[in-house]
Amino acid sequence: MTSEPAAPSSVVSPLAAIALKVAGAIAILSALLDFFILLIPPNLTNVQWQLATTTQLVDRGIVPLIGIALLLVGLWVDNSVGRTPQRKSLTSDLRFWACALASLLGLVYLLLILLHLNAVRLSSQQALAQVSTEAGEAAAQLQQRLSAELTQQQSQLGAILNNEDLLAQAIEGGQLPPDIQQYRNNPEGLSQFLQQRADQAQQQIETEIGTRRVAAERQVRVEAWRSGIRISVISLLLAAGFSIVGWLGLRRLLSLTRSA
């Protein structure tokens, strides 16, 4: 029984090298194009643009790293089977440009950590200021509403207190306490009674506003902390990966060039 002959390595290796180099080049070029589109048009004074851009750059940073790795592996396969032509200078070696790009991207992702943390800080400050403004506006609206309601209630109660039937119906229906009758001939006491009820309602609502404000501020800080930690750690890992590939590759190529 005869077995099928295995494919010669001289055929398989060039095909693998071509596939790796093409895949790597496409990944690198598509990533660089994607980064270019993300940066156009630039809006450096907009904190939200900074935050969104740095986040997307970091989230997509693994693509060029994989592309550079594939390209270098493809070039190594070519070199291992003796298909790499003799190059006259280092700048004509595609491996040099791949390692140089990796080194550059390593520096970029190191700087992105600082840019993103600063954008997170500014965005958090803006969000906290907005929460404070909204809480202040809510308190002001509350004060105006209670003041208008106090005037209206004073007028309505004055009319009810002067009408025995309406007063009895309001007390029986639970709309007014029984001791409201003591204010029939005491306008100042009625005003104090209404003001006391308004102050109690205001205090209760202000407490609720304060609770919501604290919760909103806590949520803003938590989201800022999560974004800062996640993007910073990923960007640091990418910076380390690009730098290792780039600097070690350049060092290796320089040593080969000197020994040649």
Rank of each mutant, 00 (worst) to 15 (best):
Y109S: 05
I37S: 12
R230T: 14
A216G: 05
G158D: 05
N163Y: 05
S3A: 14
I113A: 07
S9F: 14
L94S: 15
S9N: 13
W247L: 15
Q50V: 00
S103W: 07
A140H: 10
V245Q: 08
C99H: 11
R60C: 08
A198P: 00
A23S: 11
L190M: 02
D59K: 13
V120H: 07
P8T: 12
T54L: 02
R213Q: 15
A119S: 09
S30V: 15
N162E: 08
A239P: 03
S227M: 09
T53K: 04
N162H: 10
A240F: 13
Q152D: 11
T54W: 02
L190K: 06
L161A: 05
L122I: 10
L65T: 09
Q125A: 11
V77C: 06
L115K: 05
Q48T: 15
L75V: 03
I113L: 00
E217N: 13
V11R: 11
Y183D: 04
P5L: 12
G249I: 04
R197P: 00
R184F: 07
L176P: 00
L150H: 03
C99S: 10
T91S: 10
T133S: 14
R258F: 01
V131L: 06
I18P: 01
E149M: 05
K21Q: 13
V233I: 15
I180M: 13
Q182G: 04
V131P: 09
Q154V: 01
Q202H: 00
L150A: 09
A129R: 11
Y183M: 03
L90N: 03
I62C: 02
Q181C: 00
R226D: 13
Q50I: 02
A25H: 04
S232C: 06
L122S: 10
Q196C: 01
I234G: 01
D179S: 10
P5H: 04
P187G: 02
D199E: 11
I234N: 10
V81N: 05
V214W: 10
L65P: 03
I231Q: 12
E206R: 11
T2V: 06
L146K: 05
L38K: 10
A148D: 13
D78H: 05
W247P: 01
R251W: 13
L75I: 09
S259M: 05
A215C: 06
G228P: 02
L65N: 07
A127V: 07
L190F: 02
T2Q: 06
L176D: 00
Q144T: 15
G173P: 00
T2I: 08
A98S: 14
L117C: 09
P8F: 08
S3G: 10
S243D: 03
L75P: 04
L39N: 04
Q154S: 09
D179Q: 12
R145T: 15
L33G: 14
